[in-house]
């Protein structure tokens, strides 16, 4: 700190602390202005222009937003696809994660090995894994239909079928429930034992214990996991790009895939920025709605 200007050295301890605080968060603060806060505002400005590439950038007001909701024949489908993927994959994913977390919460030796196995897939996301799923769901020679054939079922053509492409993507998403499972497991382990003891004294059976102790005590965690997963699911990109490319037709064209195409394939930066803002608003509204709904359903232990 000897390099600092002279008048900075004779400071009261509180002033010195303030100075140190701002020096230490300075990299983040610069980053916030340059790479987050600034771009967020800039993004909104771009969304009010017809920015395409480098030469065209005229002010068009809210025209992009109007076009999205009234002219663009795709956008309604795109929003519907995004909602369907989001709600179904999150609903199934949270239920599955809760089921596995309950299983992992049993006190039997060696359970941590299983925990590791369930968690493992979620760290290996990315292109290589998406390609692997394409091969798993290959209609003729993939493993999924081979297993179905063992049970006498003729599997669908999955990602080349407009009916089965979306269910396929949802199934793939279930492979990545590991982190939710870990968060729910931590929540389960935080439920005090005396509540179960009390329930047992009152003559509760296993199911009553689950609905009257476990679920209410876990509800804040369940709620948190649902919100975070929903935000994430609205941004699914790689699996769509690799497995379906938004198709067949428009069957799996989701919001961020459409946004990417508009921005980096069609060079419609203004239009795509408007879509990014709609994504942002959708996420904020959904989160707010869930908070509203949860107020009646979520049980917080210490008032709040």
């Amino acid at each position: 700190m000897a390099l600092l200007p002279k008048q900075w050295r004779n400071l009261t301890p509180q002033q010195r602390e303030t100075r140190d605080f701002y020096l230490m968060i300075l990299p983040w603060l610069i980053g916030f202005v340059l790479f987050t806060g600034g771009p967020v505002i800039y993004s909104f400005i771009i969304s009010l222009t017809n920015w395409t590439g480098m030469n065209t950038r005229d002010w068009v007001g809210l025209q992009n937003y109007v076009e999205l909701f009234t002219v663009d024949p795709l956008f309604g489908t795109v929003l519907a696809n995004t909602f369907i993927y989001g709600t179904v994959s999150v609903l199934l994913g949270v239920i599955a994660a809760l089921g596995i977390a309950l299983l992992m919460n049993q006190k039997v030796p060696g359970i941590s090995i299983f925990r590791a196995i369930y968690y493992l897939p979620s760290v290996t996301s990315g292109i290589a894994i998406a390609i692997m799923w394409g091969w798993m769901f290959n209609p003729r020679s993939g493993l999924v239909n081979a297993v179905l054939a063992l049970f006498g079922i003729t599997g669908p053509t999955w990602f080349t079928s407009s009916q089965w492409a979306m269910p396929g993507l949802i199934l793939v998403s279930l492979w990545g429930i590991g982190p939710n499972m870990i968060i729910l497991l931590a929540g389960l382990q935080g439920i005090p034992q005396h509540l179960y003891d009390a329930a047992r004294i009152d003559g509760a059976n296993r199911w009553q214990e689950f609905t009257n102790v476990t679920l209410p005590m876990l509800s804040p965690v369940l709620f948190y996991v649902t919100v975070i997963s929903l935000i994430g699911s609205f941004q699914i990109f790689e699996n769509v790009l690799v497995l379906t490319n938004g198709g067949p037709g428009t069957a799996t064209r989701v919001l961020v895939f459409d946004l990417y195409q508009n921005a980096f394939v069609n060079s419609r930066m203004g239009y795509a920025s408007a879509q990014a803002w709609i994504l942002c608003v959708v996420i904020m509204v959904m989160t707010w709605l869930m908070f509203r709904i949860s107020r009646r359903m979520v049980h917080y232990e210490h008032g709040a």
């Binding site: 983040w28 987050t36 771009i46 609205f234 941004q235 921005a263 990014a276 942002c280």
Partner: peptide
């Protein structure tokens, strides 16, 4: 800072690119 953790990266992608 906590607020930016929730921000979809898609919002900053285009302005950053420009």
């Amino acid at each position: 800072m906590l607020g930016t953790m929730m921000l979809p990266l898609w919002v900053t992608l285009i302005p950053q690119y420009i």
